[in-house]
Write a protein that binds this DNA or RNA. Structure first.
Lengths: 346, 346
DNA sequence: AAAATTTCCGTTACCGTGCACGGAAATTCA
DNA sequence: TGAATTTCCGTGCACGGTAACGGAAATTTT
């Protein structure tokens, strides 16, 4: 089981390793005859280049671009950004670094502009959390022509030739949310609190999540009335009064779901009005975890965005450095259920 | 931002790279003074060895030994063994391989014998799931004198100089189990099904788990009667009749907990007797997951043993190859709550 | 046919570490 | 004090590829 090296090939073909190298990277300047001879004996001996030697000789640092929505402290995308740090450490020994590019998740223009910046940086790979179907496709197309591999996280938009996807199944997460909210028991009415800005937009995962929620309700609790209330994350006072007005009108509601990461927005209201309400939300933001530990929120469904970026970066690194392709393209992750008693070590 | 190499260190200290190398791998033959000087400038310049060059130069394979209880198909320890495969792939580029050594978890002799085999194989590191306090300490001692780093998983026994521990907090897991079983509601009586063989043994995590369970009951439901039933995993018929007898005597019981991974053992009984019983168990064995999906088991608390071995191996690899020490020695993992609706993508 | 190109290939100096080998300096022994 | 060890350290090759450089051979141009 001897290791075949480039020198063996050179010796056997009667050529020099310089020529063999030229063949391997087909950068020309080799006669047809020599080319064939080298290719043949490579195949015959099953030669495989030594990655380390190759990387050592090249010794350049390549970078993986991270294309994420801009994030304020304490918001969902900040969690994702945290995964970058972990991944950094892991890929550093591979001479890879990451670099983050942000865009405004409510502006396609800003996304386009961020894409341009990414391309300009000439990355070895890209991890992105896409929001805009069309723009993302255009970008993916461009990446493909430049043969830059890319992975998707969070939202799986249909784009050509992505290396891998990491995220939770959106529909099922809504279904699970409903199950956590009402269980099997009959409930007369539930409230879904939604974000005003999302009203027109209806991003893909939000729609799917709500549809999973609705289906669970239909299957397990068809008689239940589902009410909606829109709040403005920028305006806590308005949020409070909207909730006040809502409970004036529908005082019997005892179950609230929020299908996004913003459940902490309604926590102040809930804690001022000591009615026993069951509340289920998403994602392990610090503010959410605090509310969970205090008992104001009953359960959270968490999707570990840190893990998503971590794994996506890892997959890209494997592809870039080792030419390894992931076994599965679509990696749906486990949805974590957090309650008061298992949130501590999270 | 120039890359610091071993030559830079040599030049700056006025020594040769041979000496620097000896310091880096502390294989002696270096005077105290030189050692200090090298260490200082390494730290000062933030030198990090080039992985590729190192691997290229060495090109030998070292092995990490995995010391686990022997596992039949479909048992808890089989899950742990699965983590080995994942870790294999990750550490392969580091010229590391893993090798598994098994012992009978009910025989200290067999453990001792397995330890001997591990030592004989001269591993670069050891990951072990210990069961026997005394024997484990002896073994750990021996590893230390040979300066072989080791990590613990699953059960944290007090041993000298372990590199890291990965597992779930045993006490809290029992507490959580009780919470999942009865929630806040008052319950008159619950049944804990236990494994006969464990009766005398009382391994550390089992005791802690039960005590967490009891404390939750005491705090949230003091009036509840807690009954125990011992079953023999080797004898399904006896298990069935024991359960039959139990429910003849206490027909009112509607809540069952099993504080180990064997909840699947009582599933056949439960599915033949269509009483609406809430059942909570541990660990994502296939048989348990199936029962969960069918609704026979209400919830499982999973501890991802695959992750435990994976991370433990990774930590060891970091230590062995990069001389990097983990930030935290004790890594308590998150306890996953599995119910019917989030078990699919697990 | 000589000169000018072009094509093709071998040589060689790296890349950053690991480690065997041998020798100088310091220490211990006789 | 000289010999024998021991301690400590430098030298130099190996690991397997990469790519610049320059030169010989083949081809084209004048």
């Amino acid at each position: 089981m001897e290791k075949i090296t480039i020198n063996d090939i050179a010796r056997l073909t009667g050529l020099s390793k310089g020529t063999v190298d030229r063949v391997l990277h087909n950068r020309g300047e080799v006669s047809k005859k020599s080319y064939q001879k080298v290719m043949d004996t490579i195949k015959e001996l099953g030669y495989e280049p030594n990655l380390y030697a190759s990387l050592l000789a090249r010794a350049e640092q390549r970078t993986i671009a991270l294309l994420l929505p801009a994030h304020e402290p304490g918001t969902y995308w900040e969690l994702a950004a945290k995964g970058e740090a972990k991944a950094q450490a892991a890929i550093k020994p591979l001479s890879l670094v990451t670099r983050q590019f942000n865009y405004n998740q409510y502006s396609a223009d800003s996304f386009r502009e961020a894409c341009a910046r990414v391309l300009e940086s000439n990355p070895a790979g890209v991890v992105m959390a896409p929001m805009f179907q069309y723009e993302t496709q255009v970008f993916a197309q461009e990446l493909q022509t430049r043969s830059i591999p890319y992975s998707l996280i969070d939202t799986k938009l249909e784009t050509p030739g992505y290396l891998s996807f990491y995220g939770i199944p959106a529909y099922k997460s809504g279904y699970l949310c409903a199950a956590m909210l009402i269980g099997e028991g009959p409930v007369k009415e539930v409230l879904i609190v939604r974000i005003m800005r999302d009203k027109g937009r209806q991003s893909d995962p939000t729609v799917l999540r709500r549809s999973g929620f609705m289906d669970y309700m239909l299957e397990h609790n068809p008689g239940c009335t589902i009410r909606s209330l829109f709040i403005d994350p920028e305006d806590p006072a308005a949020t409070d009064s909207a909730l006040d007005a809502f409970f004036d009108e529908f005082p019997g509601v005892r179950h609230i779901a929020m299908l996004n990461s913003r459940v902490h927005l309604i926590v102040p209201f809930l804690e001022r009005h000591p009615i026993d309400i069951r509340v289920v939300g998403f994602d392990n933001l610090d503010a959410n975890l605090d509310a969970l530990r205090r008992g104001t929120v009953s359960a959270l469904i968490a999707q570990r965005p840190e893990e998503q970026v971590h794994q996506a970066i890892q997959a890209l690194a494997d592809r870039i450095v080792f030419q390894r392709f992931p076994e599965k393209t679509d990696n749906y992750q486990h949805m974590d259920i957090l309650i008061r008693y298992n949130a501590e070590d999270y």
